[in-house]
Design a protein around this nucleic acid. Structure first.
Length: 427
RNA sequence: GACCCCAUCGUCCAGUGGUUUAGGACACCAGAUUUUCGAUCUGGUAACACGGGUUCGAAUCCCGUUGGGGUCGCCA
């Protein structure tokens, strides 16, 4: 292992849950650190005394771990470093580059200067200091203002690359001014375009869930979410869509970060999630599903249901609604399914065939897929109806749905007793 | 409003002056599987925002327009 000098950071403020956009930023920082064999440091920006909450921090840390992100060294808390910021602020005071205003310390911005930012994703960006007002360094409450704390910490922590959202582009010249006044070398910057909602507007609750924890609850797999997120603004090449974090680390290049705003598309996320679900080992998948079905469900039985439905659900939540009939007798019957069944029952021949099917099933001793299918086809032929008529109406009767796995497999799994009960009840 | 960023199918991504009648994926549509389907397989529709340049040649370079986004707090 070669030593790397790369050091990046992810700096959440614990004033809310981990957001999709922040998670993506964290992911790219992590990818870069791991690819370069460098370090990722967590910096907790808790300088908003009122809005910062411990429970938010815990949740953010949990979500990061859940996504597969780990970090090096203990997280740094800005709230515990006030003396450091004050030290730097005093330096500027001494140099007469800053002034006091009450208890606050303000940085004097020199007018009509050009500040050049060399950004890894955007290239050179020029700013004129005429657009920048004097900047608060230390707030009246003694805590540092964001831009100052950020600049001081990135230097103090030895951060080499700042990978963050494009919403910070206009903050950067201010930070650059601080570095210059302090006589310090700034880190390199990479501003990634923000993630937008499906309609191109700012991603918010009205587009659906924005907190990582909500996706976790809905039953998205962490590897699917992180896979989707890194595809927004970066490409592993060769038109690859499904890519694990391990491989992404190998392929990651910071120069490959896109400069275009991407829209969050939950449909694609759902597709990726489905891909991960169907490729997952049934036992492992069952572990994830266990607490989403009736607690008394038999493990072996559960595994069989999972196996049967593996390719048909895209979130863990969907499994629950799709397979309800396997875990309770009081499952709902979809309106569409109800109508379909009623239509079949209006036909006299079909009705008689179903009665015959039921009667033959009662006599069947070895209630397995093959035998059931044979009975079904024999009965259909005898009553001159299409097997489909029996199959479709039976599926509705035993599951309340028009969609599902193969009927005969479903029947075998449910067992003779339940199948007959349901046929009796619904036909 | 000022300053800044951005602009390839509906969406994401590929494409970095000629090998492109612009490729892949999601979504959508159609066909198949006649045991359904939101499963599976096959196929299809669909884009270089617009206008000027530069060049033998532009999706690729430059300028402008339009459109989207961001920032202008003692929030971060």
């Amino acid at each position: 292992m070669t030593k790397s000098t790369i050091k990046v950071r992810f700096a959440p403020s614990p004033t809310g849950y981990l957001h999709l956009g922040s998670a993506r930023t964290a992911l790219f920082n992590w990818l870069y650190a791991r690819h370069t064999n460098g370090k990722l440091i967590l910096r907790i920006e808790d300088t908003d005394k009122i809005r910062s909450k411990k429970e938010f921090l815990d949740e953010i840390l949990d979500d990061l771990k859940w996504l597969g992100i780990d970090w090096d060294e203990k997280p740094i808390f800005q709230s515990k470093r006030t003396s450091i910021y004050k030290k730097y602020a005093s330096q500027l005071l001494d140099k007469r580059l800053a002034y006091k205003e009450g208890d606050a310390i303000i940085f004097k911005v020199e007018k009509s200067r050009n500040i050049k930012l060399r950004d890894i994703v955007h290239g050179e960006i020029d700013f004129n200091t005429d657009e920048i007002k004097d900047q608060v360094l230390i707030k009246s409450d003694g805590f540092p203002a964001y831009n100052f704390a950020c600049a001081v910490d990135d230097y103090e922590m030895g951060i080499t690359h700042v990978i963050r959202g494009a919403d910070h582009i206009s903050n950067t010249p201010k930070q650059l001014l601080f570095y210059e006044a302090l006589g310090l070398n700034p880190p390199k910057f990479a501003h990634m375009p923000l993630m937008m909602g499906k309609d191109g507007a700012k991603l918010s609750k009205r587009h659906g869930a924005v907190a990582i924890v909500e996706y976790k609850k809905e039953g998205f797999l962490p590897e699917a979410l992180s896979n989707y997120l890194i595809l927004l603004g970066w490409s592993p090449g060769k038109n690859r869509e499904i890519i694990g974090l391990k491989e992404a680390i190998k392929l990651f290049k910071i120069e490959g970060l896109g400069n275009v705003q991407a829209r969050f598309d939950v449909d694609k996320l759902r597709w990726i999630n489905g891909e991960y679900i169907k490729n997952k080992d049934t036992k492992v998948l069952t572990n994830l599903l266990e607490d989403r079905v009736a607690k008394n469900a038999n493990r072996n039985y559960l595994e069989k249901v999972v196996d049967l439905y593996k390719t048909r659900f895209r979130t863990l939540d969907e499994f629950t609604t799709l397979t309800r009939a396997f875990f309770t007798d009081s499952f709902p019957v979809d309106t569409e399914a109800r109508e379909k069944l009623e239509k079949y029952l209006k036909d006299d021949k079909t009705k008689k065939a179903l009665a015959g099917f039921k009667a033959d099933l009662e006599k069947l001793e070895n209630f397995n897929e093959k035998n059931i299918e044979k009975i079904c086809r024999d009965v259909a032929e005898k009553h001159k109806v299409k097997p489909a008529a029996i199959i479709h109406s039976t599926r509705v009767a035993i599951s309340g749905k028009t969609v599902g796995a193969g009927l005969f497999e479903m029947m075998e799994l449910l067992g003779k007793k339940k199948v007959l009960e349901r046929l009796e009840k619904h036909l």
